[in-house]
Amino acid sequence: MEYTDACVYPLPNGDSSLRRMAIEARDLGFDSIVAACVEGGSYRGVEIVGGILARAKEIREVQAIARKSTSSPALLMASAGPYSLNRALIQTGWVRVIREIQTTPKNSFDHILSRIAAERQVAVDLDLSLIVRERGYLRQKVLQRYADIVLLHEKFGFPLTISSGARSILEMKSRRDMTALCSLFGLDRDGTLAALGSVNRVLNRHKPVEVVG
């Protein structure tokens, strides 16, 4: 899993089947994809990781979703919220990726959470579909927020993941396109390629040492 598109939505959430998306991902230079709400597997050399999306207002709801999901290796991705929720999401250890950070206030993810996320190897997802889909003020806000996250990432070293957020094969982006789009908010080529490879790192992260007995 060297290069991974961190979130795509196959049928029935989009207009393309999972297999077709896997073929398209391979043509676009990826060797794995995270597909929302499907079981993991492999198709024509492309590894498919099942993604679980948790959109909750309280940590208890996320914990309930995490307990229900038994399929392995699945990537639990939770939507960001206020500061307290984000802190709880990062500290629980179940959530691997925090998504939709751009919808939250700027102070909901600060240098303290960045440091904890780096320690616990919890990634922050940058969804490129918002940059492509939005126009004007909304796009500017997303670019501003992503630039801020990139700044924190460079300082504290927490993982970033990059997703196309594609609901169709026409919305999927190649590595080349992703690199160009990421340059809009200050993530350079090396940083983008590292972020495309960080899903593997997040899935196989080292657990903290526990003292038993």
């Binding site: 940059i131 492509v132 919305e171 999927m172 190649s174 396109d177 160009a180 809009l184």
Partner: peptide, 20 residues
């Protein structure tokens, strides 16, 4: 230009992808 092409999603209300 590549970023601009990646941000192009439809032409005359038809969904399209322009891949460099």
């Amino acid at each position: 230009v590549i970023a601009g092409l990646a941000a192009l999603t439809n032409i005359h209300d038809k969904k399209i992808a322009v891949r460099s």
